Amino acid sequence: MDISVVVPLYNEVESLPELTAWIKRVMEDHGFSYEVILVDDGSTDGSWMVIENLKAVDPRITAVKFRRNYGKSAALNVGFAAAQGDVVITLDADLQDSPDEIPELYRRITEENVDLISGWKKQRYDPPTKTIPTKLFNAVTRNMSGIHNLHDFNCGLKAYKKEVVKNIEVYGEMHRYIPVIAKWAGFTRVEEQVVQHYPRKYGRTKFGPARFIKGFLDLLSIFFVGKFGKRPMHFFGAMGVISFLTGFFIAVWLIAEKLISIANQSPYRNVTEQPLFFFALVAILIGTQLFLTGFIAELVSRNSVDRNNYQIEKVI
């Protein structure tokens, strides 16, 4: 199979017939063998009924329905697991991403041997309350990840080699940083393509202001896991050793100072009367705790078996 199109959706009942027809037209015009995977993230507006009707007339549609709303990352992760195509395309269900971009994305993945192509909505039709924070997050992500050639990490329109989606894990709000996750997984050929962005035709956006806080926290998580996910002791242990040794040497210095004063019969203060002593004591305790945290984290080392265990109601 040439292409798997993965579409996460939540309350997009009006756009689904138009979107699937658009995808079908593009695929047939270019002679692609394909499948469309619709992941209903707990819609409450009748989207699933529309999907069932679409499935009844087009066997190339596969659909998954969550019992409740888990978020876009969960929907993408399940869609990636189900994808069988050599190239996987993701796009949003709100008709703001154009399926007409798919042939060029497919060509670049297959001919240029690119691991991942992220769309860049160079001209956007979103309000400033969305575009300005997005530019800020993109700038921060570029600096923290080292992927300096991407302008829009969060664009829903992306293309992947099959190997990429089968070897990455998306959870929380980390769909915004899939290029970063792919890079940390060893897929370093990440490129960009300018894509057409359309104004929203139906409904309203499903993302509120809280997405910025969640996105920033997940960026920190990705940075930490990418650097130390397989070796947490290198992070916590190093910090713990530095803190412990700092406190230890301060305590030794204070004790030595007192002993020298006693030997020289000079006036001195008790060690426990000096503020530095309590600083040293705290540093030793924090250092010990950090070291133990690193040891426990090393044992756990991301072995959770149910982080992506979602309750799926139906698969058709």
Results as ranks from 00 to 15, higher is better:
residue 215 G to W: 00
residue 294 G to T: 06
residue 92 D to L: 06
residue 65 K to A: 05
residue 62 T to Y: 04
residue 104 E to K: 06
residue 138 N to T: 10
residue 161 K to N: 13
residue 37 I to F: 03
residue 162 K to P: 09
residue 315 V to N: 02
residue 28 E to D: 07
residue 260 I to M: 11
residue 17 P to K: 03
residue 37 I to W: 02
residue 171 Y to F: 15
residue 116 L to W: 01
residue 11 N to R: 13
residue 304 S to E: 13
residue 75 A to Y: 01
residue 44 T to A: 13
residue 170 V to I: 15
residue 169 E to K: 14
residue 154 N to T: 15
residue 200 R to G: 02
residue 186 G to A: 05
residue 265 Q to W: 12
residue 87 V to Q: 02
residue 224 F to D: 11
residue 241 V to M: 12
residue 222 I to V: 15
residue 109 I to G: 00
residue 52 E to T: 01
residue 267 P to F: 09
residue 245 L to A: 12
residue 176 R to W: 04
residue 165 V to F: 14
residue 166 K to E: 12
residue 102 I to S: 00
residue 251 A to F: 07
residue 143 N to I: 12
residue 98 S to F: 05
residue 250 I to S: 09
residue 29 D to T: 04
residue 208 G to Y: 15
residue 33 S to M: 04
residue 297 A to C: 08
residue 196 Q to R: 12
residue 223 F to E: 14
residue 53 N to A: 11
residue 246 T to A: 14
residue 96 Q to E: 14
residue 164 V to T: 10
residue 75 A to V: 08
residue 51 I to S: 01
residue 12 E to G: 06
residue 154 N to C: 15
residue 27 M to F: 13
residue 112 E to G: 08
residue 222 I to G: 02
residue 178 I to M: 08
residue 237 G to C: 07
residue 50 V to F: 07
residue 31 G to M: 02
residue 249 F to H: 12
residue 294 G to E: 02
